[in-house]
Write a protein that binds this DNA or RNA. Structure first.
Lengths: 203, 203
DNA sequence: TATTCTAGATTGAACGCTCATTCTATGTTA
DNA sequence: TAACATAGAATGAGCGTTCAATCTAGAATA
């Protein structure tokens, strides 16, 4: 049964790859992309350092895979949002979850690391910008639906501006959780919700 | 004249220190805290690697000094704001400058690097959080003045919530400039100004 | 003024270590 | 047996850091 055996191999290899990515994500979170070593990652993944190179060409490829994996979650979330029934209500309700998510210091650290790396590594920048573009498109469609349901007729530029402000708001949370870890999360959630509401209800 | 000679020495040493910090900031911007080496920094500063250790105990001390220096600018800006005549108007006007500043990719990269480092390095985290606290206090006093001039009587928690939303908005810009470098800056400025206006005019 | 003294500025080589990566050899499985 | 999985040692480069040796320029001395 050659098909099944090849499938098994593929599955096993894929599992091993995932194991490396998981270990790498943890190491990157703890020490940063350049602070984490292959030795640390391999130890955390339970295999030899050399063996890592059976699955990834080099360290940068691991970084790129982590970045891509992290941004996939972002795309999935924005797609879910667009599929909701009452989109306007969903946007504000899901905002609460989204805010809580962004305020988790464990994930925030890695996301900031990714952004900082994107500022100097063109390979990472490309991945990040591609995901951002897809996310903005999805969010723009969502906002357009909300606005036209409320009787507004906006041009593209206006919608794009609203998307940027919304994105700014969400991404700022990543820094807040680190700069002020004792912040009142509940109050911040309702503050953000208020800001979103007045954003989408503006003239 | 022993006093003058000692002063000269002190000035020279301080200049040399600053020279190192300037070179380090550039290297950190280009390669990150852990990607930049002492050899690179010393070369960029025009001195030997060993000589750096006359001015700083180790690499982490350089990082800490860069962080402290970067955050000083933040504190200065928030102090200036509080000293303005019509504070409310000043806040919105200065926001334009502030947004443009945050959107400069050269500085944004270093600031994100600092935040990411703060997420895992307690020494850096302490510096960052101290500066954030001072900044929030200053901003809270500013907002309180604006609100009470407009006839609102807010409790501390409400003001703190507004401060957090404002901070979230500004800090989000650091990520936007990297994730979407072609964004329409003019439109984003007015979008942010609108959000600030409705934030400080809320019920 | 000419000479010596001195203390800080500065260098460049050297240290021990860790890095990312490669290579070789040995299991393992089908 | 053939192909893949895995380990672990080896490699050369680069790391942060130290240190003994020089340079420099002003102070003290004569």
């Amino acid at each position: 049964m050659p098909t099944s055996s090849s499938t098994t191999d593929h599955t096993r290899a894929e599992a091993r790859r995932q194991q490396i990515l998981c270990a790498a994500a943890q190491c990157f979170r703890e020490h940063g992309f350049h602070g984490a070593s292959i030795a640390q990652i391999s130890k955390s993944a339970g295999m030899s350092a050399g063996h890592i190179y059976h699955y990834f060409d080099n360290k940068e490829a691991i970084i790129a895979a982590i970045v891509a994996q992290d941004l996939e979650g972002l795309l999935k979330l924005s797609a879910e949002l667009r599929a909701a029934g009452d989109i306007g209500q969903a946007l504000i309700e899901r905002a609460a979850e989204g805010v809580a998510d962004q305020l988790d210091p464990a994930t925030a650290g890695l996301k900031l690391e990714i952004a900082a790396e994107a500022a100097r590594n063109p390979r990472v920048a490309e991945i990040v910008r591609e995901a951002d573009l897809a996310c903005r498109r999805s969010l723009a469609a969502t906002l357009r639906a909300i606005r036209s349901a409320a009787g507004h007729d906006d041009d593209d530029a206006k919608i794009e501006g609203m998307v940027e402000v919304l994105a700014t708001l969400f991404e700022g949370l990543l820094l807040r959780s680190i700069r002020n870890p004792e912040l009142d999360r509940g109050r911040l959630v309702s503050g953000i919700q208020g800001a979103i509401r007045s954003l989408i209800e503006q003239a």
